[in-house]
Design a protein around this nucleic acid. Structure first.
Length: 548
RNA sequence: GUGCCCGUAGCUCAAUCGGAUAGAGCACCAGCCUUCUAAGCUGGGGGUUGUGGGUUCGAUCCCCGCCGGGCACGCCA
Protein backbone atom coordinates (compact mmCIF):
# COMPACT_ATOMS: atom_id res chain seq x y z
CA UNK A 1 0.00 0.00 0.00
CA UNK A 2 1.19 3.49 -0.77
CA UNK A 3 2.75 5.52 1.95
CA UNK A 4 0.21 8.27 1.66
CA UNK A 5 -3.44 8.30 0.89
CA UNK A 6 -3.43 10.52 -2.13
CA UNK A 7 -1.07 8.39 -4.17
CA UNK A 8 -2.96 5.32 -3.04
CA UNK A 9 -6.16 6.75 -4.48
CA UNK A 10 -4.39 7.73 -7.69
CA UNK A 11 -3.17 4.13 -7.97
CA UNK A 12 -6.72 2.88 -7.66
CA UNK A 13 -7.98 5.23 -10.36
CA UNK A 14 -5.07 4.42 -12.64
CA UNK A 15 -5.85 0.72 -12.40
CA UNK A 16 -9.49 1.36 -13.10
CA UNK A 17 -8.70 3.55 -16.07
CA UNK A 18 -6.44 0.88 -17.55
CA UNK A 19 -9.39 -1.50 -17.50
CA UNK A 20 -12.07 0.93 -18.64
CA UNK A 21 -10.15 2.66 -21.40
CA UNK A 22 -6.83 0.97 -22.19
CA UNK A 23 -6.39 3.14 -25.28
CA UNK A 24 -6.78 6.39 -23.34
CA UNK A 25 -4.05 8.98 -23.82
CA UNK A 26 -1.53 9.06 -21.02
CA UNK A 27 -2.78 11.90 -18.91
CA UNK A 28 -1.95 12.56 -15.32
CA UNK A 29 -4.71 11.79 -12.86
CA UNK A 30 -5.00 14.71 -10.48
CA UNK A 31 -6.87 14.77 -7.22
CA UNK A 32 -8.04 17.83 -5.41
CA UNK A 33 -9.61 18.61 -2.08
CA UNK A 34 -13.16 19.80 -2.68
CA UNK A 35 -14.12 23.05 -1.03
CA UNK A 36 -17.31 21.54 0.28
CA UNK A 37 -17.50 18.62 2.63
CA UNK A 38 -20.54 17.34 0.77
CA UNK A 39 -18.26 16.59 -2.14
CA UNK A 40 -16.25 14.06 -0.22
CA UNK A 41 -12.62 13.98 0.82
CA UNK A 42 -11.05 13.97 -2.62
CA UNK A 43 -12.39 14.73 -6.07
CA UNK A 44 -11.19 13.71 -9.50
CA UNK A 45 -12.04 15.35 -12.81
CA UNK A 46 -10.29 12.89 -15.11
CA UNK A 47 -13.55 11.75 -16.70
CA UNK A 48 -14.31 15.25 -17.92
CA UNK A 49 -10.82 15.71 -19.24
CA UNK A 50 -10.85 12.43 -21.14
CA UNK A 51 -14.41 12.75 -22.41
CA UNK A 52 -13.40 14.60 -25.52
CA UNK A 53 -10.37 12.55 -26.65
CA UNK A 54 -12.20 9.31 -25.92
CA UNK A 55 -15.42 10.60 -27.42
CA UNK A 56 -17.43 9.36 -24.48
CA UNK A 57 -19.99 10.93 -22.25
CA UNK A 58 -18.18 12.26 -19.14
CA UNK A 59 -20.79 11.00 -16.67
CA UNK A 60 -20.92 7.59 -18.27
CA UNK A 61 -17.12 7.41 -18.26
CA UNK A 62 -16.96 8.44 -14.60
CA UNK A 63 -19.51 5.79 -13.71
CA UNK A 64 -17.43 3.15 -15.48
CA UNK A 65 -14.30 4.29 -13.65
CA UNK A 66 -16.10 4.03 -10.33
CA UNK A 67 -17.31 0.54 -11.13
CA UNK A 68 -13.78 -0.52 -12.04
CA UNK A 69 -12.11 0.61 -8.81
CA UNK A 70 -10.27 -2.19 -6.99
CA UNK A 71 -11.14 -2.89 -3.38
CA UNK A 72 -9.25 -0.78 -0.87
CA UNK A 73 -8.98 -0.76 2.91
CA UNK A 74 -8.94 3.04 2.93
CA UNK A 75 -11.55 3.99 0.38
CA UNK A 76 -15.06 4.03 1.78
CA UNK A 77 -16.91 4.78 -1.41
CA UNK A 78 -16.78 6.68 -4.69
CA UNK A 79 -19.67 8.49 -6.25
CA UNK A 80 -20.53 10.30 -9.43
CA UNK A 81 -21.38 13.97 -9.10
CA UNK A 82 -22.14 17.01 -11.20
CA UNK A 83 -20.91 17.08 -14.79
CA UNK A 84 -18.61 14.10 -14.23
CA UNK A 85 -16.70 14.50 -10.98
CA UNK A 86 -15.72 11.39 -9.07
CA UNK A 87 -16.01 12.12 -5.37
CA UNK A 88 -14.05 9.86 -3.07
CA UNK A 89 -14.80 9.28 0.58
CA UNK A 90 -12.24 7.82 2.95
CA UNK A 91 -12.68 5.53 5.88
CA UNK A 92 -11.78 7.10 9.24
CA UNK A 93 -8.71 4.88 9.53
CA UNK A 94 -7.29 6.42 6.37
CA UNK A 95 -7.53 9.92 7.84
CA UNK A 96 -6.22 8.92 11.25
CA UNK A 97 -3.17 7.37 9.70
CA UNK A 98 -1.70 10.86 9.39
CA UNK A 99 -1.57 11.13 13.18
CA UNK A 100 0.65 8.08 13.36
CA UNK A 101 2.90 9.42 10.63
CA UNK A 102 3.33 12.74 12.43
CA UNK A 103 4.18 11.11 15.74
CA UNK A 104 6.63 8.73 14.12
CA UNK A 105 8.47 11.44 12.21
CA UNK A 106 8.43 14.15 14.90
CA UNK A 107 10.36 17.25 13.92
CA UNK A 108 11.08 15.54 10.62
CA UNK A 109 7.42 15.43 9.66
CA UNK A 110 6.84 17.39 6.46
CA UNK A 111 10.39 17.08 5.24
CA UNK A 112 11.13 15.58 1.87
CA UNK A 113 14.19 14.97 -0.23
CA UNK A 114 13.44 16.40 -3.65
CA UNK A 115 16.63 18.44 -3.41
CA UNK A 116 18.87 15.44 -2.71
CA UNK A 117 21.36 17.67 -0.97
CA UNK A 118 22.01 19.75 -4.06
CA UNK A 119 23.13 23.37 -3.47
CA UNK A 120 20.61 26.21 -3.69
CA UNK A 121 21.64 29.83 -3.33
CA UNK A 122 19.12 32.25 -1.85
CA UNK A 123 20.16 35.88 -2.10
CA UNK A 124 18.18 38.41 -0.12
CA UNK A 125 18.28 41.74 1.72
CA UNK A 126 21.48 42.80 -0.09
CA UNK A 127 21.16 46.29 1.32
CA UNK A 128 23.76 48.90 0.59
CA UNK A 129 25.76 49.71 3.74
CA UNK A 130 24.49 53.27 3.76
CA UNK A 131 21.84 53.14 6.48
CA UNK A 132 19.77 51.00 8.82
CA UNK A 133 17.53 48.36 7.23
CA UNK A 134 14.08 49.63 6.22
CA UNK A 135 10.77 47.80 6.20
CA UNK A 136 11.26 46.67 2.62
CA UNK A 137 14.42 44.89 3.71
CA UNK A 138 12.38 43.43 6.53
CA UNK A 139 9.95 41.93 4.08
CA UNK A 140 12.89 40.55 2.14
CA UNK A 141 14.52 39.14 5.24
CA UNK A 142 11.33 37.43 6.34
CA UNK A 143 10.59 36.10 2.86
CA UNK A 144 14.15 35.03 2.13
CA UNK A 145 14.66 33.26 5.42
CA UNK A 146 11.33 31.43 5.18
CA UNK A 147 11.95 30.43 1.57
CA UNK A 148 15.40 29.19 2.55
CA UNK A 149 13.93 27.11 5.35
CA UNK A 150 11.27 25.69 3.04
CA UNK A 151 13.90 24.68 0.52
CA UNK A 152 16.02 23.09 3.24
CA UNK A 153 12.97 21.10 4.32
CA UNK A 154 12.77 19.78 0.76
CA UNK A 155 16.30 18.47 0.96
CA UNK A 156 18.23 21.30 -0.69
CA UNK A 157 21.56 22.43 0.71
CA UNK A 158 20.74 26.10 1.04
CA UNK A 159 23.19 28.98 1.27
CA UNK A 160 21.74 32.29 2.46
CA UNK A 161 23.71 35.09 0.89
CA UNK A 162 23.83 38.86 1.33
CA UNK A 163 25.42 40.95 -1.42
CA UNK A 164 26.88 44.30 -0.41
CA UNK A 165 27.05 47.02 -3.04
CA UNK A 166 29.99 48.59 -1.25
CA UNK A 167 31.86 49.95 -4.22
CA UNK A 168 29.60 52.45 -5.88
CA UNK A 169 28.85 56.14 -5.84
CA UNK A 170 26.42 55.82 -2.94
CA UNK A 171 29.32 54.87 -0.71
CA UNK A 172 31.17 58.03 -1.71
CA UNK A 173 28.02 59.83 -0.77
CA UNK A 174 27.98 58.17 2.60
CA UNK A 175 31.59 59.07 3.26
CA UNK A 176 31.02 62.70 2.30
CA UNK A 177 27.91 62.87 4.48
CA UNK A 178 29.75 61.58 7.54
CA UNK A 179 32.68 63.84 6.82
CA UNK A 180 30.42 66.88 6.66
CA UNK A 181 28.76 66.01 9.98
CA UNK A 182 32.14 65.45 11.61
CA UNK A 183 33.34 68.85 10.50
CA UNK A 184 30.14 70.43 11.79
CA UNK A 185 30.64 68.81 15.15
CA UNK A 186 34.07 70.29 15.26
CA UNK A 187 32.58 73.68 14.67
CA UNK A 188 33.94 73.96 11.17
CA UNK A 189 31.83 75.25 8.32
CA UNK A 190 30.93 72.30 6.11
CA UNK A 191 28.65 72.22 3.12
CA UNK A 192 26.45 69.16 3.31
CA UNK A 193 26.54 67.18 0.06
CA UNK A 194 23.60 67.78 -2.26
CA UNK A 195 22.38 64.18 -2.30
CA UNK A 196 23.81 63.22 1.08
CA UNK A 197 22.16 61.07 3.74
CA UNK A 198 20.29 63.16 6.28
CA UNK A 199 19.49 60.59 8.95
CA UNK A 200 20.40 61.06 12.57
CA UNK A 201 22.58 57.96 12.35
CA UNK A 202 25.05 59.87 10.17
CA UNK A 203 25.62 62.27 13.07
CA UNK A 204 26.11 59.34 15.45
CA UNK A 205 28.71 57.77 13.21
CA UNK A 206 30.50 61.08 12.82
CA UNK A 207 30.57 61.53 16.59
CA UNK A 208 31.92 58.02 17.10
CA UNK A 209 34.55 58.67 14.50
CA UNK A 210 35.70 61.82 16.23
CA UNK A 211 35.60 60.13 19.60
CA UNK A 212 38.13 57.65 18.27
CA UNK A 213 40.41 60.53 17.25
CA UNK A 214 39.53 60.12 13.59
CA UNK A 215 40.62 62.80 11.17
CA UNK A 216 37.67 64.22 9.19
CA UNK A 217 39.93 65.24 6.34
CA UNK A 218 41.01 61.64 5.76
CA UNK A 219 38.10 60.66 3.52
CA UNK A 220 39.31 57.12 2.85
CA UNK A 221 39.39 56.36 6.55
CA UNK A 222 36.02 58.03 7.10
CA UNK A 223 34.57 55.82 4.42
CA UNK A 224 36.02 52.64 5.89
CA UNK A 225 34.80 53.61 9.34
CA UNK A 226 31.29 54.46 8.16
CA UNK A 227 30.84 51.29 6.10
CA UNK A 228 32.05 49.16 8.98
CA UNK A 229 29.69 50.92 11.38
CA UNK A 230 26.69 50.41 9.16
CA UNK A 231 27.49 46.81 8.42
CA UNK A 232 27.67 46.25 12.15
CA UNK A 233 24.38 48.02 12.60
CA UNK A 234 22.66 45.98 9.89
CA UNK A 235 24.05 42.83 11.44
CA UNK A 236 22.43 43.81 14.70
CA UNK A 237 19.13 44.49 12.96
CA UNK A 238 19.28 41.05 11.39
CA UNK A 239 20.21 39.40 14.65
CA UNK A 240 17.28 41.07 16.35
CA UNK A 241 15.15 39.69 13.57
CA UNK A 242 16.60 36.21 13.95
CA UNK A 243 18.02 36.00 10.44
CA UNK A 244 21.43 34.51 9.88
CA UNK A 245 23.40 34.55 6.64
CA UNK A 246 25.90 31.93 5.56
CA UNK A 247 27.85 34.32 3.41
CA UNK A 248 28.36 38.01 2.75
CA UNK A 249 29.56 38.78 -0.74
CA UNK A 250 31.22 42.15 -1.26
CA UNK A 251 30.94 43.95 -4.54
CA UNK A 252 34.35 45.48 -3.84
CA UNK A 253 35.88 42.00 -3.86
CA UNK A 254 34.77 41.54 -7.46
CA UNK A 255 37.01 44.43 -8.43
CA UNK A 256 39.85 43.28 -6.19
CA UNK A 257 39.76 39.78 -7.67
CA UNK A 258 39.70 41.07 -11.22
CA UNK A 259 36.33 39.42 -11.82
CA UNK A 260 34.81 42.62 -13.16
CA UNK A 261 37.58 43.02 -15.71
CA UNK A 262 37.38 39.34 -16.62
CA UNK A 263 33.68 39.68 -17.23
CA UNK A 264 34.20 42.60 -19.58
CA UNK A 265 36.83 40.62 -21.46
CA UNK A 266 34.61 37.57 -21.77
CA UNK A 267 31.62 39.59 -22.87
CA UNK A 268 33.73 41.35 -25.48
CA UNK A 269 34.87 37.97 -26.74
CA UNK A 270 31.26 36.94 -27.10
CA UNK A 271 30.91 39.35 -30.00
CA UNK A 272 27.86 40.88 -28.39
CA UNK A 273 29.48 44.21 -27.61
CA UNK A 274 30.07 47.36 -29.58
CA UNK A 275 31.56 50.82 -29.11
CA UNK A 276 29.39 53.87 -29.43
CA UNK A 277 29.77 57.43 -28.20
CA UNK A 278 32.96 56.43 -26.46
CA UNK A 279 31.25 53.78 -24.35
CA UNK A 280 31.21 49.98 -24.54
CA UNK A 281 27.71 48.49 -24.94
CA UNK A 282 26.33 44.99 -24.58
CA UNK A 283 23.67 43.90 -27.03
CA UNK A 284 21.28 42.69 -24.31
CA UNK A 285 18.36 43.14 -26.71
CA UNK A 286 19.52 39.88 -28.30
CA UNK A 287 18.35 38.23 -25.09
CA UNK A 288 15.05 39.93 -24.57
CA UNK A 289 16.04 43.19 -22.89
CA UNK A 290 14.29 46.44 -23.85
CA UNK A 291 17.41 48.22 -24.90
CA UNK A 292 21.14 47.65 -25.03
CA UNK A 293 23.13 48.46 -21.91
CA UNK A 294 26.34 50.34 -21.31
CA UNK A 295 29.05 48.25 -19.69
CA UNK A 296 31.89 50.74 -19.60
CA UNK A 297 31.21 54.42 -19.50
CA UNK A 298 33.13 56.88 -21.63
CA UNK A 299 35.09 57.88 -18.53
CA UNK A 300 36.44 54.33 -18.30
CA UNK A 301 34.50 53.22 -15.21
CA UNK A 302 31.95 50.40 -15.23
CA UNK A 303 28.22 50.64 -14.75
CA UNK A 304 26.80 48.64 -11.85
CA UNK A 305 25.48 46.19 -14.37
CA UNK A 306 28.91 44.63 -14.95
CA UNK A 307 29.69 43.66 -11.35
CA UNK A 308 26.10 42.42 -11.13
CA UNK A 309 26.74 39.99 -13.96
CA UNK A 310 30.15 39.09 -12.59
CA UNK A 311 28.55 38.35 -9.24
CA UNK A 312 25.94 36.06 -10.75
CA UNK A 313 28.58 34.25 -12.73
CA UNK A 314 30.29 33.41 -9.45
CA UNK A 315 27.05 31.90 -8.20
CA UNK A 316 27.03 29.51 -11.10
CA UNK A 317 30.76 28.86 -10.84
CA UNK A 318 30.48 28.16 -7.15
CA UNK A 319 28.24 25.25 -8.02
CA UNK A 320 24.82 26.74 -7.49
CA UNK A 321 22.83 25.38 -10.39
CA UNK A 322 19.77 26.61 -8.51
CA UNK A 323 19.49 30.16 -7.28
CA UNK A 324 16.76 32.57 -6.37
CA UNK A 325 16.99 36.29 -5.68
CA UNK A 326 14.51 38.05 -3.44
CA UNK A 327 14.27 41.70 -4.43
CA UNK A 328 11.95 44.67 -4.40
CA UNK A 329 9.92 44.96 -7.57
CA UNK A 330 11.47 48.38 -8.13
CA UNK A 331 14.52 46.45 -9.31
CA UNK A 332 12.65 44.33 -11.80
CA UNK A 333 14.46 46.06 -14.61
CA UNK A 334 17.66 44.29 -13.64
CA UNK A 335 16.20 40.84 -14.19
CA UNK A 336 16.36 40.92 -17.98
CA UNK A 337 19.77 42.60 -17.86
CA UNK A 338 21.43 40.10 -15.57
CA UNK A 339 19.99 37.15 -17.44
CA UNK A 340 21.04 38.65 -20.76
CA UNK A 341 24.57 39.18 -19.50
CA UNK A 342 24.74 35.60 -18.25
CA UNK A 343 23.46 34.25 -21.55
CA UNK A 344 26.02 36.19 -23.53
CA UNK A 345 28.77 34.85 -21.29
CA UNK A 346 27.41 31.36 -21.28
CA UNK A 347 27.38 31.33 -25.06
CA UNK A 348 31.08 32.10 -25.28
CA UNK A 349 32.28 30.02 -22.33
CA UNK A 350 29.94 27.09 -22.86
CA UNK A 351 28.87 27.22 -19.24
CA UNK A 352 25.36 26.15 -20.14
CA UNK A 353 23.57 28.56 -17.85
CA UNK A 354 19.80 28.21 -18.28
CA UNK A 355 17.95 31.12 -19.86
CA UNK A 356 15.85 31.72 -16.76
CA UNK A 357 18.77 31.65 -14.32
CA UNK A 358 18.51 32.86 -11.63
CA UNK A 359 14.93 32.71 -10.35
CA UNK A 360 13.47 35.89 -8.90
CA UNK A 361 10.91 36.67 -6.26
CA UNK A 362 9.94 40.30 -6.63
CA UNK A 363 8.00 41.81 -3.80
CA UNK A 364 5.95 44.99 -3.65
CA UNK A 365 6.51 47.87 -1.29
CA UNK A 366 5.48 47.98 2.34
CA UNK A 367 3.59 50.95 3.71
CA UNK A 368 3.33 51.33 7.45
CA UNK A 369 0.14 52.66 9.00
CA UNK A 370 -0.40 53.98 12.49
CA UNK A 371 -3.37 55.84 13.83
CA UNK A 372 -4.94 55.68 10.41
CA UNK A 373 -2.06 57.52 8.81
CA UNK A 374 0.93 56.43 6.84
CA UNK A 375 4.20 56.49 8.78
CA UNK A 376 7.08 57.62 6.64
CA UNK A 377 9.78 58.69 9.01
CA UNK A 378 11.86 57.09 11.67
CA UNK A 379 13.80 59.06 14.21
CA UNK A 380 17.18 57.60 13.36
CA UNK A 381 16.92 57.03 9.64
CA UNK A 382 15.10 60.24 8.89
CA UNK A 383 13.48 59.31 5.62
CA UNK A 384 12.07 55.84 6.15
CA UNK A 385 10.74 53.35 8.70
CA UNK A 386 13.32 50.84 9.87
CA UNK A 387 13.04 47.15 10.66
CA UNK A 388 14.15 47.98 14.16
CA UNK A 389 11.28 50.44 14.64
CA UNK A 390 8.86 47.67 13.78
CA UNK A 391 10.48 45.03 15.97
CA UNK A 392 10.58 47.43 18.91
CA UNK A 393 6.89 48.23 18.50
CA UNK A 394 5.27 44.89 17.84
CA UNK A 395 7.85 42.22 18.53
CA UNK A 396 9.95 39.98 16.36
CA UNK A 397 7.53 37.08 15.98
CA UNK A 398 4.67 39.31 14.88
CA UNK A 399 6.81 41.18 12.36
CA UNK A 400 8.11 37.99 10.78
CA UNK A 401 4.74 36.32 10.71
CA UNK A 402 3.03 39.40 9.24
CA UNK A 403 5.64 40.05 6.58
CA UNK A 404 5.35 36.59 5.06
CA UNK A 405 1.60 36.36 5.38
CA UNK A 406 0.82 37.73 1.93
CA UNK A 407 1.81 36.94 -1.59
CA UNK A 408 5.07 38.74 -2.40
CA UNK A 409 3.68 40.54 -5.42
CA UNK A 410 0.94 42.39 -3.58
CA UNK A 411 1.50 45.68 -1.89
CA UNK A 412 1.69 45.34 1.84
CA UNK A 413 -0.03 47.52 4.38
CA UNK A 414 1.50 46.97 7.79
CA UNK A 415 -0.95 48.33 10.34
CA UNK A 416 0.94 48.85 13.58
CA UNK A 417 -2.21 49.42 15.60
CA UNK A 418 -3.62 46.13 14.41
CA UNK A 419 -0.38 44.28 15.03
CA UNK A 420 -0.07 45.82 18.47
CA UNK A 421 -3.59 46.07 19.79
CA UNK A 422 -3.23 42.54 18.93
CA UNK A 423 -3.06 41.14 22.33
CA UNK A 424 -6.37 39.78 21.15
CA UNK A 425 -6.39 39.65 17.41
CA UNK A 426 -2.85 39.03 16.35
CA UNK A 427 -2.77 35.97 14.11
CA UNK A 428 0.66 34.96 15.30
CA UNK A 429 -0.55 34.78 18.88
CA UNK A 430 -3.54 32.84 17.69
CA UNK A 431 -1.27 30.13 16.30
CA UNK A 432 1.18 30.28 19.19
CA UNK A 433 -1.67 30.08 21.65
CA UNK A 434 -2.88 26.86 20.12
CA UNK A 435 0.58 25.43 20.67
CA UNK A 436 0.74 26.64 24.27
CA UNK A 437 -2.69 25.26 25.07
CA UNK A 438 -1.70 21.82 23.83
CA UNK A 439 1.50 21.90 25.83
CA UNK A 440 -0.54 22.68 28.91
CA UNK A 441 -2.91 19.77 28.41
CA UNK A 442 -0.07 17.37 27.70
CA UNK A 443 1.73 18.49 30.83
CA UNK A 444 -1.35 17.96 32.96
CA UNK A 445 -1.96 14.53 31.49
CA UNK A 446 1.35 13.34 32.90
CA UNK A 447 1.77 11.22 29.79
CA UNK A 448 5.09 10.68 28.08
CA UNK A 449 4.64 12.03 24.55
CA UNK A 450 6.82 9.22 23.23
CA UNK A 451 4.36 6.62 24.45
CA UNK A 452 1.59 8.19 22.37
CA UNK A 453 3.19 6.87 19.20
CA UNK A 454 1.63 3.51 19.81
CA UNK A 455 -1.73 4.77 21.05
CA UNK A 456 -4.81 3.14 19.56
CA UNK A 457 -6.46 5.81 17.40
CA UNK A 458 -9.73 4.07 16.63
CA UNK A 459 -11.66 5.85 19.43
CA UNK A 460 -11.33 9.08 17.44
CA UNK A 461 -14.64 9.18 15.63
CA UNK A 462 -15.84 12.76 15.91
CA UNK A 463 -16.03 14.82 12.75
CA UNK A 464 -13.77 17.48 14.29
CA UNK A 465 -11.15 14.85 15.05
CA UNK A 466 -11.17 13.46 11.54
CA UNK A 467 -10.95 16.96 10.11
CA UNK A 468 -7.90 17.67 12.24
CA UNK A 469 -6.24 14.40 11.30
CA UNK A 470 -6.84 15.03 7.64
CA UNK A 471 -5.41 18.53 7.90
CA UNK A 472 -2.25 17.06 9.43
CA UNK A 473 -1.99 14.78 6.44
CA UNK A 474 -1.94 17.75 4.06
CA UNK A 475 1.14 19.31 5.66
CA UNK A 476 3.87 17.66 3.55
CA UNK A 477 2.27 18.39 0.21
CA UNK A 478 1.51 21.95 1.22
CA UNK A 479 5.18 22.46 2.15
CA UNK A 480 6.36 21.01 -1.14
CA UNK A 481 4.16 23.46 -3.00
CA UNK A 482 5.25 26.44 -0.92
CA UNK A 483 8.90 25.58 -1.56
CA UNK A 484 8.42 24.97 -5.26
CA UNK A 485 6.57 28.24 -5.79
CA UNK A 486 8.56 30.27 -3.23
CA UNK A 487 5.29 31.14 -1.47
CA UNK A 488 5.66 30.98 2.31
CA UNK A 489 2.27 32.66 2.77
CA UNK A 490 0.73 29.29 1.95
CA UNK A 491 2.27 27.97 5.15
CA UNK A 492 0.93 30.91 7.14
CA UNK A 493 -2.61 30.27 5.95
CA UNK A 494 -2.24 26.58 6.68
CA UNK A 495 -1.12 27.24 10.25
CA UNK A 496 -4.01 29.60 10.88
CA UNK A 497 -6.41 27.01 9.54
CA UNK A 498 -4.94 24.25 11.66
CA UNK A 499 -4.95 26.43 14.78
CA UNK A 500 -8.58 27.40 14.13
CA UNK A 501 -9.63 23.77 13.82
CA UNK A 502 -7.78 22.94 17.00
CA UNK A 503 -9.30 25.82 19.01
CA UNK A 504 -12.72 24.79 17.83
CA UNK A 505 -12.10 21.20 18.88
CA UNK A 506 -10.61 22.22 22.19
CA UNK A 507 -13.62 24.34 22.97
CA UNK A 508 -16.12 21.64 22.13
CA UNK A 509 -14.49 18.56 23.61
CA UNK A 510 -12.49 17.57 26.65
CA UNK A 511 -9.21 15.79 26.12
CA UNK A 512 -8.58 14.54 29.65
CA UNK A 513 -11.60 12.31 29.98
CA UNK A 514 -12.12 9.34 32.28
CA UNK A 515 -12.17 6.79 29.47
CA UNK A 516 -8.48 5.87 29.30
CA UNK A 517 -8.53 4.67 25.69
CA UNK A 518 -10.30 7.77 24.44
CA UNK A 519 -8.01 10.00 26.47
CA UNK A 520 -4.86 8.46 24.99
CA UNK A 521 -6.23 8.69 21.47
CA UNK A 522 -7.07 12.38 21.96
CA UNK A 523 -3.68 13.07 23.50
CA UNK A 524 -2.05 11.46 20.49
CA UNK A 525 -4.11 13.65 18.20
CA UNK A 526 -3.29 16.94 19.90
CA UNK A 527 0.35 15.98 20.27
CA UNK A 528 0.42 15.50 16.52
CA UNK A 529 -1.21 18.91 16.05
CA UNK A 530 1.36 20.42 18.38
CA UNK A 531 4.18 18.84 16.42
CA UNK A 532 2.95 20.24 13.10
CA UNK A 533 2.44 23.71 14.59
CA UNK A 534 5.97 23.57 15.92
CA UNK A 535 7.43 22.38 12.63
CA UNK A 536 5.56 25.02 10.67
CA UNK A 537 6.42 27.92 12.96
CA UNK A 538 10.06 26.87 12.95
CA UNK A 539 10.15 27.26 9.18
CA UNK A 540 8.89 30.82 9.55
CA UNK A 541 11.41 31.65 12.24
CA UNK A 542 8.63 32.18 14.78
CA UNK A 543 8.75 30.78 18.32
CA UNK A 544 6.42 28.04 19.47
CA UNK A 545 6.00 28.86 23.18
CA UNK A 546 4.97 26.24 25.72
CA UNK A 547 3.34 28.82 27.92
CA UNK A 548 1.67 32.12 27.23
C1' G B 1 4.46 57.22 -24.26
C1' U B 2 6.68 51.79 -23.64
C1' G B 3 7.30 47.45 -20.44
C1' C B 4 6.23 44.59 -15.89
C1' C B 5 2.92 43.90 -11.63
C1' C B 6 -1.72 44.65 -9.15
C1' G B 7 -7.44 45.38 -8.98
C1' U B 8 -11.89 39.96 -5.02
C1' A B 9 -16.95 41.72 1.29
C1' G B 10 -16.64 48.43 4.56
C1' C B 11 -10.86 47.25 5.70
C1' U B 12 -6.49 43.61 5.23
C1' C B 13 -6.05 39.30 2.31
C1' A B 14 -7.03 33.74 0.36
C1' A B 15 -8.87 30.72 -3.49
C1' U B 16 -5.65 23.51 -4.31
C1' C B 17 -1.38 25.58 -11.71
C1' G B 18 -9.40 25.93 -15.61
C1' G B 19 -13.55 23.03 -11.37
C1' A B 20 -18.99 22.32 -8.31
C1' U B 21 -22.84 27.31 -4.15
C1' A B 22 -15.75 32.63 -4.50
C1' G B 23 -13.48 31.76 1.35
C1' A B 24 -10.88 33.66 6.10
C1' G B 25 -9.47 37.56 9.60
C1' C B 26 -10.64 42.58 11.28
C1' A B 27 -14.86 45.69 12.03
C1' C B 28 -20.41 45.26 13.19
C1' C B 29 -24.67 42.44 15.75
C1' A B 30 -26.25 38.31 19.23
C1' G B 31 -24.56 34.46 22.56
C1' C B 32 -20.62 31.05 25.62
C1' C B 33 -15.94 31.03 31.42
C1' U B 34 -17.95 26.85 39.37
C1' U B 35 -15.01 22.11 33.76
C1' C B 36 -7.77 20.65 30.37
C1' U B 37 -5.19 28.65 29.37
C1' A B 38 -11.67 33.35 27.08
C1' A B 39 -4.63 35.59 23.63
C1' G B 40 -10.44 31.02 22.87
C1' C B 41 -15.39 29.26 20.89
C1' U B 42 -20.69 29.43 18.55
C1' G B 43 -24.23 31.92 15.31
C1' G B 44 -25.60 36.26 11.89
C1' G B 45 -25.63 40.05 7.96
C1' G B 46 -22.29 41.39 4.09
C1' G B 47 -20.02 40.13 -3.47
C1' U B 48 -22.30 41.69 -10.90
C1' U B 49 -14.32 38.94 -8.45
C1' G B 50 -12.66 47.07 -11.82
C1' U B 51 -15.22 46.87 -16.80
C1' G B 52 -16.73 45.00 -21.96
C1' G B 53 -15.94 40.98 -25.14
C1' G B 54 -13.62 36.04 -26.48
C1' U B 55 -11.89 30.77 -25.80
C1' U B 56 -15.19 25.73 -23.49
C1' C B 57 -18.78 21.25 -20.53
C1' G B 58 -17.05 25.13 -16.81
C1' A B 59 -13.18 31.45 -16.08
C1' U B 60 -11.21 35.16 -10.01
C1' C B 61 -7.58 32.19 -13.06
C1' C B 62 -6.20 31.84 -20.06
C1' C B 63 -6.57 35.75 -24.68
C1' C B 64 -7.94 40.98 -26.49
C1' G B 65 -9.78 46.09 -25.52
C1' C B 66 -10.82 49.82 -21.88
C1' C B 67 -10.70 52.12 -16.65
C1' G B 68 -7.94 52.77 -12.06
C1' G B 69 -3.32 52.19 -8.97
C1' G B 70 2.05 50.94 -8.27
C1' C B 71 7.00 50.30 -10.20
C1' A B 72 10.69 50.62 -13.90
C1' C B 73 12.33 52.88 -18.25
C1' G B 74 20.33 57.03 -17.20
C1' C B 75 27.20 56.45 -19.73
C1' C B 76 22.68 56.13 -11.25
C1' A B 77 22.87 51.81 -7.81
Amino acid sequence: MSADIKSHLIDLLTQSLAGVAPQSPASAIALERPKQAAHGDWACNIAMQLAKPLKRNPRELAQALIAGLPASPWLDRAELAGPGFINLRLKPAAKLDAVRRVLAAGTGYGRADTGHGRPFLVEFVSANPTGPLHVGHGRQAALGDAISALLEAQGWKVAREFYYNDAGAQIDNLALSVQARAREQRGEAAGFPESGYHGEYIREIAADYLAGNGDPDDLATVRKFAVAALRREQDEDLRAFGVKFDNYYLESSLYADGKVEATVTALTASGKTYEQDGALWLRTTDYGDDKDRVMRKSDGSHTYFVPDVAYHVTKWQRGFAHAVNIQGSDHHGTVARVRAGLQALSAVTGAGIPRDYPDYVLHKMVTVMKGGEEVKLSKRAGSYVTVRDLIDEVGRDAVRFFLVSRKADTEFVFDIDLAKSQTEDNPVYYVQYAHARICSVLAQSGTDPQSLQTAELAPLALERELVLAQRLGEFPEMLAEAARDFTPHTLVFYLRELAAEFHSYYNAERVLVADEGLKLARLALIQAVRQVLQNGLALLGVRAPEKM
